[in-house]
């Protein structure tokens, strides 16, 4: 299959995007969960942009998720509760943070990057914990009140509006991301991941590209964070936590790194299993999570997408 074909929409993709619409009618009682899945999926896509395409490892991607969440929350708390305005501001805040910290990430190799990203997220966590006047500290940000979307669609108890809102945002952002990764810019990122020494010889400004994609990934994560705030009308300090960074990495690996659908599939499977297992026993779900992670790393490196691809090759 050539690149030209890959950028065109495959029939299976149309079918895939019909599923959220079907889900709306099939699981009317689980719309809140479905909205959470959409948010997790968007967060995973944001990490995929920087990790799967540009090859930047990060243990602190929650930093941008948290920035987006707090930006949207603080804005709504101050009275500007319009969701779309909140999204825009959260995106901007996360992008600015991403841009500023991208220069730290450029330095050093994998290990340094892991540590620096982890350090940035940890600093923000401590900061959010200490600035109790602004963030509410460990109690979380209270009094977030969202206005109806475009003044028309109010958030309801059943999560109908939240689900439709999150899914539409996910689709739009996915569509943009899909355009980006198939553009020359996206291809140059893959080139950098595969051989960072050779790309300058082809005339690619490696550092500028990495800064750009890191900023973009941060902006995406910010949107996911803002969506979480707006649908739950609450911000917990947990948005900056290490477990959240680890979780999104896990979702992405489970689904398959380096293909946008991997993040989405990973989110669907992860969140469903989470809901199911923690329903049985909230304490030991972590055990199965850990086991799953080890199995995926050792035996199914490509995640769900990789396994699917392998299966279709075997059949052909």
């Amino acid at each position: 299959m050539t690149r030209r074909d890959a950028s065109r929409w495959h029939p299976a993709e149309y079918a895939f995007w019909a599923l959220p619409i079907v889900a709306y009618f099939v699981f009317p009682d689980h719309l809140a969960l479905l909205a959470q899945i959409a948010i997790a999926a968007l967060f995973a896509v944001s990490l995929d942009l920087i990790l799967g395409y540009a090859g930047i490892v990060s243990l602190g991607h929650a930093a941008f998720f948290g920035i987006g969440a707090y930006a949207a929350g603080l804005l709504a708390q101050a009275g500007w509760g319009d969701p779309v305005l909140g999204l825009a501001c959260a995106t901007l805040a996360a992008a600015v943070t991403g841009f500023a910290t991208s220069f730290l990430v450029l330095r050093g190799a994998d290990l340094t990057r892991l540590m620096v990203t982890l350090g940035v997220a940890s600093m923000l966590y401590v900061l959010a914990n200490k600035l109790t006047d602004i963030t509410g500290g460990l109690d979380g940000l209270q009094g977030v009140e969202m206005k109806p979307i475009f003044g028309q669609f109010a958030f309801d108890l059943y999560g109908k509006t939240a689900y439709v809102y999150c899914t539409i945002i996910l689709f739009v952002m996915f569509w943009i991301a899909r355009r980006v990764v198939h553009s020359p810019f996206g291809l140059s990122l893959q080139g950098i991941r595969q051989n960072a020494v050779r790309m300058p010889a082809l005339g690619t400004p490696v550092n500028a590209r990495l800064v750009a994609v890191y900023t973009l990934g941060a902006a995406y994560a910010g949107i996911a964070g803002a969506l979480l705030t707006q649908t739950t009308q609450f911000v917990s300090i947990d948005v900056f936590s290490f477990s959240r960074s680890a979780e999104v990495l896990l979702i992405l690996v489970l689904g398959g790194i380096g293909s946008l659908y991997g993040g989405i599939l990973g989110a669907v499977v992860f969140m469903t299993v989470h809901e199911y297992l923690s329903g049985i026993d909230p304490l030991y779900w972590q055990f199965w999570l850990g086991l799953l992670l080890i199995v995926v790393v050792l035996f199914a490196r490509g995640g769900i997408m990789g396994t699917l691809r392998l299966a279709s090759k075997v059949r052909a």
């Binding site: 990790l51 490892v57 243990l59 994998d110 290990l111 892991l114 680890a246 990495l249 896990l250 690996v253 304490l283 030991y284 779900w285 972590q286 055990f287 999570l289 850990g290 086991l291 799953l292 992670l293 080890i294 995926v296 790393v297 050792l298 490196r301």
Partner: peptide, 19 residues
């Protein structure tokens, strides 16, 4: 790759916590 090692050992951490 370092990423695999990170993921694998995070998996171990989760299992050790619940154990």
């Amino acid at each position: 790759p370092h990423l695999d090692q990170v993921l694998f050992s995070i998996g171990l951490v989760f299992m050790s916590i619940s154990t």
